[in-house]
Each structure stands twice: as structure tokens, then as C-alpha cells.
Computed example of a mutant assay.
Amino acid sequence: MRIILLTQDDPFYLAQNIDYLIKNMPKHSEVVATVVFDVSPFGKRESFSDKLKKTYDIFGLGFFVNYGVKFVMSKLNPNKKVKNILAKHNVPLVEIEGNINKVENLERLKAYKPDLLISIAGNQIFKLPLINLAPKGCLNLHTALLPKYRGLMPSFWVIKNNEKYTGVSVFFVDEGIDSGDILVQKKVEIGNKTQAELIDHTKLLGMQAILESVEKIHTGGYELIPNPNEEMTYFSFPTKDDVKEFLAAGKRFY
């Protein structure tokens, strides 16, 4: 089965997990190409200076310095760069211009004859021609137990809201936001994890869920888990006040 990954050049969590995913891909499937989007932690495309300012304004000096140091260190470590991991595994990088839904970009993807698309932190809205491009569909990884906690930064919100459990959901993409039927879902206890620890945990768990999903699609023997809109909750990016409440309750980012 021929797979195209749709992801972003995240400097903190993705490189090592995509490395794990490609290394453990079953023999009947292979990643034949990858699209790497620009990083957009706030859910939209912004300049680098705007990202810095917004990070400082919302999360404060300590968070800004901590992740600033991690960002610099990632630039010095080739194993923290998604594109380097792809090169190590000889996975071609599909160069796109602008929105992935443009006809010329879809034609570039079609040239690789994918059977399946998999989005991992894909940060553009997918339209039907892209969703339907591969005959076996388009999967997305969401690090929460859908239909709860659709939207952005679920690792922050589940901790802030004192949830006991969270998890990961691999679902078939439709035209909604995190609203498609679920193929694999895994649950995990939050305990006293920091947000960074929870992200580490759920990202790896997510790769394992993707591998399980690939196996299920290969065999064809699976039952979908409903993702009903009437049971959903949705969260956008935290505000400065949300962060203050998070810290005041004794929650920790790292």
C-alpha cells in the first residue's frame, strides 16, 4: 500500500515520531512521499516574528525561554528536523506552492499513485478533491478522545479541565473539523503528567495507532467508531487568561 504523509516541520515532537512510524511501517505498506507544511502552532499561517510575539504574550517569559532554547537546540540537531528524517529514509519531499488543494498540487500528489493519505499535524483545511484523492481515503491523527476536545491544543485543555483520561484518535477525514468516523482510538491516564510529557506520550501512542490503522485498512476487516457531532466539544487556542488559570491551578507545561 502506497502512503503519502501530510505533516509539518515541527521542531519539537514530530521528527522522532515520524522516524518511528516509517521504521515500523509493515512490509505491505510504504511511505512513498511526504508534504511538509510550514509550522503553524496557532492554527493559522503567520510570520516567524508574529509567532514569537504571540507565544510570549500568551504563555509568558518562562514558557517562551524554555521553548526558545529547545527551538535553537533543534536547529543544531539534525535528528530533530522532519525533512532530515525523510531524507534518511529516502522518502521524497513533494514541493507544493500555496494551498495544498490547488489543482497543480493535487496533480503532484497523484503522480505518486497513493493508496492512502495520512495527516499528522497537517495544518491546512482539506477539501474533497484532496480527501478523495487516494482510493483508501485520508486519515488524520488527533491527540484526544473524539468526539470530545476537537480543535486545537487538546493536551492543554484536558489538563486544564482536570480530565482523568485522554488519548488518541485516528479517523477518516471529512469536510468537518475532527468529525470523521474513527478507525482506531487509544485511551491513556493523564495522572500528574506535564503538558510536554503528555504530548510526548500521546504522539508515540498516535504513531502506534496509525500503524494499527494501516494494518486494518490493509486487511479490510474493521469496524468504524462513531464520532457524533451531538457529543462533541470544541476548543480553540488558549488565551492569556486560560494560561493564567492553568498555572494558578498548579498545572505545569514542562
Score class of each variant (00 low, 15 high):
133 L>G: 11
150 R>V: 11
143 T>N: 09
60 G>V: 06
40 S>E: 08
67 Y>Q: 10
49 S>P: 07
119 S>V: 03
118 I>Y: 11
141 L>E: 09
175 E>T: 12
90 N>Q: 13
47 S>E: 02
140 N>K: 08
103 V>W: 12
71 F>A: 11
55 T>W: 04
58 I>Y: 04
48 F>E: 12
45 R>K: 15
75 K>Y: 10
61 L>E: 11
126 F>W: 08
112 Y>L: 10
130 L>F: 13
44 K>I: 07
37 F>M: 14
88 K>T: 12
92 P>Q: 07
72 V>T: 11
118 I>D: 05
39 V>M: 09
61 L>I: 14
146 L>G: 09
106 L>F: 11
58 I>H: 00
153 M>W: 14
157 W>N: 04
103 V>S: 15
124 Q>I: 09
163 E>N: 13
170 V>C: 08
161 N>S: 06
50 D>K: 14
121 A>L: 13
39 V>E: 06
168 V>N: 03
109 L>H: 02
89 H>V: 06
170 V>Y: 10
140 N>M: 10
159 I>A: 04
151 G>P: 13
176 G>K: 02
84 N>P: 12
122 G>C: 07
42 F>E: 05
48 F>S: 11
164 K>F: 11
75 K>E: 14
94 V>E: 07
148 K>P: 00
100 I>N: 06
144 A>H: 07
47 S>L: 09
140 N>S: 14
136 K>I: 04
101 N>K: 02
140 N>V: 12
58 I>K: 00
85 I>T: 14
